[in-house]
């Protein structure tokens, strides 16, 4: 048995638009001895759309997954910041509000009062596994990468359910990246919203938010943005497409997952496949920094 033994809630994106996030998560966990057992027959957490339109539904959808997790007993590991937020909020509410818990139990048909912990992988790596031990596993220090860490909304807000060390200026991802040898560039937009929930419906609003993030990242001297949420990455990549799709000024900064960089630093097989599946191709940056030889 491993010291780190979790029920894994993969979340929808990790086998779809963010497959590279799911695959890199599984690969780094395996390499570090973090054991993941997938939650059997999990369903979608409802994301923003449920909580924006129906309060009870927004607790009942993750409630079904919490009920499944309760049967297994282990702590739950999540990598999507939106799933993390929805599960943590639903869990807090069913544990604190018995009347609500009863209504959720009625609609789910099972007991949603899961009392174990729901953790984000970044939290486990930084705060349990420890950066000193991660450093020991780095075979290829990521010199040449200059990253701005992008937390977005749901890793830090609301602070009552989130793990980060500060709501206005979190440093968990900063410290993680430094442990991999990445140069972390200071910027003031770590926790600014990317407008993901409006990406398809009010593209005009989202584009302005995304454009601002890229412009500020470039001004900060970064050559990549690193995130821990598939919604943020998809939205940044989709809405940053060169002129022909949206912006007048094209940006080319790759947007990467923290798990992919850990895989790269540990020289895990599969890293090139993950990186190549991004909409904004990071391979030119990999070649320029000599972190990966183009094949």
């Amino acid at each position: 048995m491993s010291d780190y033994d979790f029920t894994y809630y993969p979340g929808c994106s990790q086998s779809g638009s963010a497959e590279e996030y799911g695959d890199s998560t599984e690969a780094v966990c395996k390499a570090l001895g973090i054991e993941l057992t997938e939650l059997p027959d999990w369903s979608c957490c409802g994301a923003s759309s449920a909580h924006m339109t129906n309060d009870l539904l927004s607790v009942a959808l993750p409630g079904r997954d919490l009920a499944e997790a309760k049967k297994l007993g282990r702590d739950v590991l999540v990598v999507c910041a939106a799933c993390y937020s929805r599960m943590k909020i639903a869990q807090k509410r069913v544990l604190e509000d018995e009347e609500l818990a009863r209504r959720v139990e009625e609609s789910v048909g099972e007991d949603p009062r899961f009392a174990g912990q729901v953790r984000h992988l970044l939290d486990v790596l930084v705060n349990d596994y420890g950066l000193a031990r991660i450093k020991e596993r780095v075979l290829l220090p990521l010199e040449g990468l200059k990253a701005v860490p992008y937390y977005g909304c749901l890793l830090v807000r609301p602070p009552e359910v989130c793990f980060c060390d500060s709501v206005e200026n979190p440093t968990d991802l900063d410290r993680f990246l430094e442990a991999l040898g990445v140069e972390v560039r200071p910027w003031s937009f770590k926790t600014d919203c990317c407008g993901g929930s409006l990406s398809l419906s009010r593209t005009d609003v989202t584009e302005r938010l995304v454009n601002k993030l890229f412009t500020r990242a470039e001004e900060a001297g970064a050559n990549c943005i690193v995130a821990a949420c598939p919604m943020c990455v998809a939205n940044l990549e989709m809405r940053q497409q060169p002129g022909k799709f949206s912006f007048k000024i094209p940006h080319h900064l790759p947007v990467l997952y923290f798990t992919e960089l850990l895989g790269l630093a540990m020289t895990l097989p599969g890293t090139d496949r993950w990186l190549k599946s991004h909409i904004i191709d990071p391979m030119p940056l990999m070649a320029e920094t000599k972190l990966m030889i183009p094949s």
């Binding site: 923003s48 924006m52 909304c153 807000r157 609301p158 602070p159 926790t191 919203c193 929930s197």
Partner: peptide
């Protein structure tokens, strides 16, 4: 966008 910046 439910970013919760205001709420915090």
């Amino acid at each position: 966008a439910s970013c919760e910046t205001c709420s915090t």
